[in-house]
Measured scan of single mutants.
Amino acid sequence: MKTQEELTEIVRDHFSDMGEIATLYVQVYESSLESLVGGVIFEDGRHYTFVYENEDLVYE
């Protein structure tokens, strides 16, 4: 089982391919040991929310 830090790094690596990240945040109250819920804001102003669970990243 991966730690929350490892899950965060996986998500950061994925989004870094889309541009320069200004902020990546995790909603700790919605996340667990198996899933990571949060959002990412890019330097150009784009903002996505995401759920990473079971090695699957869903964002909008």
Rank of each mutant, 00 (worst) to 15 (best):
F42N: 00
S16V: 08
I41R: 05
E60I: 15
D44F: 02
E6V: 08
I41V: 09
E5A: 14
V37W: 11
K2Q: 06
E60H: 14
I21K: 01
A22Y: 09
S32T: 13
E34T: 11
G45K: 04
L24G: 00
E53S: 14
R12P: 01
L24V: 09
G39Q: 09
R12W: 12
E30Q: 09
H47C: 07
T23F: 13
Y29Q: 06
T8V: 10
G45L: 04
V37T: 15
V51A: 08
E34Q: 15
T8N: 04
L7V: 06
T8I: 11
D44Q: 01
K2M: 09
S31H: 11
R12T: 06
I41G: 03
T23L: 14
L57G: 01
Y59I: 09
Y59S: 05
Q4K: 13
Y48A: 02
F50Q: 00
G45M: 04
E6M: 09
V58P: 01
V58K: 15
T8K: 08
Y48L: 09
V51S: 09
V11Y: 02
S31W: 10
T3P: 05
L33I: 13
R46K: 06
G45A: 04
Y25E: 04
E20S: 12
D13V: 15
L57S: 02
G45P: 00
V28L: 13
T23R: 11
V11D: 01
S16E: 08
L24P: 00
E30L: 10
F42C: 02
L57R: 01
F15Y: 03
V11G: 01
E55Q: 12
K2F: 06
G38C: 03
I10R: 10
L36T: 02
D13T: 14
F42L: 07
S32Y: 10
I41C: 07
A22V: 14
H47F: 07
F15H: 00
Q27A: 12
T3W: 05
V51F: 10
R12G: 04
L7R: 04
N54T: 05
E53R: 12
E9N: 12
H47I: 06
G45I: 02
S32V: 12
Y48R: 00
R46C: 09
H14R: 13
T23E: 10
H14Y: 11
F42G: 00
E34D: 08
E9I: 12
E34S: 14
Y59Q: 03
K2I: 05
Y52K: 02
K2C: 06
L57N: 01
Y59T: 05
S32W: 10
E20Y: 10
H14V: 12
V40K: 00
F50D: 00
E55H: 12
M18L: 11
S16C: 07
I41E: 05
K2H: 08
F42V: 00
L24K: 00
F50A: 00
E30A: 09
R12V: 06
I10P: 03
F15V: 02
S31C: 09
E53V: 14
N54C: 08
L36A: 04
D13K: 15
D56T: 15
V28M: 13
M1A: 12
S35T: 12
E5T: 09
I41A: 04
E34V: 11
E6L: 07
L7K: 04
V11M: 05
L7S: 02
E53I: 15
T8Q: 08
E5S: 11
E5V: 09
E6S: 06
A22L: 11
T23V: 14
K2E: 03
E34F: 07
D17E: 15
K2Y: 06
D56N: 15
E43I: 14
D13Y: 13
I21Q: 01
S32E: 13
L33D: 10
E55T: 09
E43K: 15
H47L: 05
K2T: 06
R46Q: 07
E20T: 15
M1S: 14
M18W: 11
Y59L: 07
K2D: 04
E30H: 12
Y25K: 03
Y59H: 07
E5D: 10
V58H: 14
E60D: 08
E60S: 14
L33F: 10
K2W: 05
N54Q: 09
M1N: 13
S16K: 14
E9S: 12
E30G: 07
Y59D: 03
E6N: 07
D56S: 15
E6D: 09
G45V: 01
D17M: 14
F50E: 00
F42M: 12
E30P: 05
T49G: 05
D44P: 01
I10A: 07
V51N: 07
V51C: 10
K2S: 06
L36Q: 01
G19A: 04
D17L: 12
Y25R: 03
V26G: 03
Q27M: 13
E6R: 04
E34G: 15
S35F: 12
Y52W: 09
D13H: 14
Y29N: 06
R46H: 07
I21M: 04
D17P: 14
G39A: 08
Q27N: 14
V37E: 07
D56H: 15
Q4V: 10
V11P: 01
E55I: 05
Y59M: 08
V26S: 03
V26I: 14
T8C: 09
D56F: 15
E20C: 11
V26T: 06
I21P: 02
L36I: 11
E43V: 14
F15N: 01
Y59R: 03
V28I: 15
F15Q: 01
I41H: 06
L33Q: 13
L24A: 02
V26Y: 05
D56L: 15
V11H: 01
S32P: 07
G45H: 04
E53N: 13
E9Y: 08
E9L: 12
D17I: 14
I10F: 09
L24M: 09
A22T: 10
L57C: 05
R46I: 05
H14W: 11
V40N: 00
T23G: 07
Y29F: 10
F50T: 00
Y48N: 01
V58Y: 13
V37Y: 11
E60Y: 11
D13P: 04
Y48D: 00
Y29C: 08
T8S: 09
R12S: 05
V37N: 06
H14E: 05
T8P: 02
N54A: 10
V58A: 09
E30W: 06
G45D: 03
G39T: 10
T3R: 06
R12H: 06
V37S: 10
Q4D: 04
S35E: 06
L24S: 01
Y29P: 05
I10W: 08
Y25T: 05
